[in-house]
Each structure stands twice: as C-alpha cells, then as structure tokens.
C-alpha cells in the first residue's frame, strides 16, 4: 500500500513535468514563434494603443455604429473578464421581456418597424462576447447607419460586404460580419 502510494506520487510528478510543464511550454514556444499575433489574442493595435481584439466583440449603442448582439455578461455587457450567456430558458418571462425590449430599441433607433429583425440581433450570444452578427442583421442596420452618418447607403453596404466572411472552406459554420472591424472601417471612412 505504502509502496503504491509512493509510486503514485512519483508517477504523478513525472506526468506533471511532462504534461503540465513540458507540453504547454513546447506548445507556447512554437505558437509564439509562428503564430505570434494569434497566440496573443489577435489584438487590433493602432498607434501603440490596443483598440480591441478581432475575436472579441464590443458593445455599441450609438445609432452611428452597427450594433453587436446583446450580451449576458455582468455587470457591464461585453465584459471580457467574465464571459457568460444569459442562461435564460425558452419559457422564461424575462427572456420574452428582454427580446421585446431589444426589438423596441432597434426600431426606436431608426430601424424599419414593418420588418421583423434577424433573430441573432435580439438574442444574447453564448459567450456574451460574440464578435459577429449575421449578414442579415448587418443589412437591417445599413439604412440607419448611412442616415446618421450622411453616407450613401451603397458606400455602407460596400463596407459591410468587405467585412462579411462566408462559410469557412466553403462549408463550415455560418456567414458572419465582424462588427468591431466594420465599425472601425466606418469611422475611417467618415473622417
């Protein structure tokens, strides 16, 4: 029994060195050498200032910007330090209230009241940090953004198309628009 316990401690120590130290160090070393940008969070840096990450969404409420999806993080939306969904169940009255509130906010901000709104724009994402909206959700907002920025709709549409990604390798996942990159491009185009 004692011998087995000692063997267990020694074996665990060996596995700790192999799988807990050598393995992550090796992966880190190679990653930092060949995927430096991605291994460090795919940051968007301008003039030495970190503006965000291409992979992490940010909250937008100004009608001049494309809005991201609702976020369930607390205390503030898109809190990178505490990723979270809302975990609201399908029959929870709080979910219904939240969705109705989001629909109203989008319509009040200048959305077309006759159109129903693409579902991803009024439901919270799983991570609370979703960087994307669907192309339909972007299209819904084009008129509002163009109007508040006094830009021609065709110009805004062109930008949306530039930041739309199709299915990866032609089959995987879903088409999507990166909201932060699109909004940064919009600001650059409006100046």
């Amino acid at each position: 029994m004692l011998q087995t316990t000692l063997q267990s401690i020694r074996a665990l120590l060996v596995f700790t060195v192999i799988t807990g130290v050598a393995y992550p160090l090796a992966v880190t070393g190679i990653s930092q050498a060949i995927f430096k940008d991605r291994a460090n969070g795919s940051l968007i840096v301008k003039d030495d200032k970190v503006l965000g990450s291409r992979l992490i969404g940010q909250p937008f409420s100004d009608p001049r910007y494309f809005w991201s999806r609702p976020s369930g993080t607390s205390p503030q939306p898109y809190n990178g330090a505490a990723s979270s969904g809302t975990n609201q169940g399908p029959t929870n009255p709080a979910l219904k209230e939240a969705v109705e509130g989001r629909v109203k906010a989008l319509r009040d901000a200048g959305g077309d009241a006759a159109k129903s709104i693409p579902v991803d724009l009024v439901t919270a994402s799983g991570s609370g940090l979703d960087p994307h909206i669907s192309p339909a959700a972007a299209e819904y907002q084009i008129a509002r953004v163009a109007k508040t920025r006094s830009l021609p709709e065709a110009k805004v549409k062109e930008l949306v198309e530039r930041y739309t990604e199709g299915r990866q390798l032609g089959v995987l996942g879903e088409p999507r628009v990166n909201v932060l990159e699109l909004n940064l491009a919009l600001d650059a185009a409006t100046k």
Binding site: V103, V119, D120, T123, S125, G126, H132, S134, A136, E174
Partner: peptide
C-alpha cells in the same frame, strides 16, 4: 416578439439565444 427566425442564406434563424453567430 418581432424577430425573424427563418433560416436564409444570410441568417441561420432558429433559436439563437445562447448561441454564437
């Protein structure tokens, strides 16, 4: 409540609460 849940080439529709685009 006013959401468009149909699946199209531009949106996956359905129950997107708690899912990533």
């Amino acid at each position: 409540a006013g959401a468009d849940t149909t699946a199209t080439a531009m949106s996956s529709g359905g129950n997107m609460e708690g899912k990533e685009v």
